[in-house]
Computed example of a mutant assay.
Amino acid sequence: MGKKRTAKYKKHIGKAPGTLIYTGEKNSQQLFIESFDYNPDGFTEKELKNIEDVFGYKTSESITWININGLNHIEAIESAGAHYGLHPLILEDIVNTSQRPKIDEYEDYLFLSLKMLHLDANENVIIEQVSFVMGDRYVLTFQEAEGDVFDNVRERIRSGKGRIRGMGADYLLYALVDAIVDHYYVISEMLGNKIEDIEDTLFEGNVEDSMSIQILMLKKELLKVRRAIFPLREIISRIEKSESTLIDKKSIQFYRDVYDHVIQLSDNIDIFREMIWSLMDMYMTTISNRMNEVMKVLTIIATIFIPLTFIAGIYGMNFDHMPELHLKYGYYIVWIVMVAVFIAMVVYFKRKKWL
């Protein structure tokens, strides 16, 4: 029996549009909220206890990043969405962890849904959905659980290095998206290394029984990464071409840089995809060649013994008037003939390079 799969979409059947249903598997996740409120002169970092504590940041004169972990806390997300004026369909997409990466533009805010990828201790790809809501002077991020790829952004805000404190919410959104895309490179490099390792093993002829499973698992990982990366091209392209007043023209060039990275990653994924198909073909060819080698050896052995069996069969017949049977050295002569035939055939096969 295979692993039973959870039917996530069954939860939505018969529900009204905009109904919030958490489709993930981390139902015991604690609600964790952190805020970074900053301007060119300083910053404030807080761990908020209640969802109501985020409401005051909407009218803040500084730039605010509010990070909410725990998509299973539906009531808290509904409360935050109501205060910030988010559409119910946006809130539905936030708690739907199967949501395809997308962008929606509204008059007062932009909504982005992306896939954040990172590796576990065994170098397996972990996929987590991250949703962004960018307003005039704030960015809200919604994550399924604690642990993300934004530590570098946090350090830049704390230290004041770079231009992040002097820019607006659109640059903060860029910095967060760029952090996710940078980790795509880590995943891409890991996939490339795994493909090269399998390729080297196949070239060396060290084919294991589990090799086909390794290739299939690698193919599944690649498809998951591909589904996360490819929609990002359209998302960044729409931000570049957006006429929203929330995106400053100075920030467009940074989004173009992210777009270039996404295109490069997409090309890498396409190359890896072709390489994996080639790996499967190479694996099947290697298995076939190994089988052919076995059959060749068995065929040569059988061919060598055919004339020897023929000689033994002739002199195994029970006729009284076979002249050779009464020779004094007949037994030894037959052995000499059989050994000579054996040696002659081995020499012939070696000259033909069949052995």
Rank of each mutant, 00 (worst) to 15 (best):
F254A: 01
R233S: 11
D257A: 02
T44R: 11
S60V: 11
N268A: 14
Y259D: 13
I187Y: 04
K49C: 03
A76P: 10
Y255W: 13
V225M: 11
I247A: 14
L48W: 10
Y259G: 12
G85V: 08
L117E: 03
F55R: 12
G2K: 10
Y138F: 14
S159P: 05
D248L: 15
Q253T: 13
G166L: 03
V181C: 06
D93W: 01
M217R: 14
Y138H: 01
V54C: 10
N69L: 05
N318V: 11
L308Y: 14
S251E: 06
I215P: 03
I126T: 08
I74P: 02
K10M: 05
P231W: 09
G147K: 06
L279S: 02
I103T: 00
E78F: 11
L89E: 01
H83G: 07
F203R: 05
I33Q: 11
F310R: 00
M116R: 02
T141N: 00
D257Y: 01
Y38D: 13
I336F: 15
W65R: 03
Y331P: 08
G14N: 08
L265V: 01
A76F: 06
R351D: 13
S266T: 12
F342V: 04
V125T: 06
L31D: 12
F310W: 01
T64M: 05
E204K: 15
I287N: 09
Y332S: 12
R165Q: 07
L48P: 05
I236N: 02
D104K: 00
N27Y: 10
I195G: 01
L202H: 09
F55Y: 15
I215L: 07
Y283A: 01
T6I: 15
A344M: 12
S237I: 04
M190P: 00
A179I: 05
V334F: 08
N318A: 07
I13M: 08
P40L: 02
Y255F: 14
Y331T: 13
G160F: 09
R158L: 13
V339N: 07
V95L: 06
G135R: 00
S278Y: 11
Y332R: 03
D209G: 06
D197S: 08
D281L: 12
A76K: 13
I301S: 15
Q143A: 10
Y22D: 09
R163C: 01
Y106S: 06
M282V: 07
K10G: 01
N193K: 09
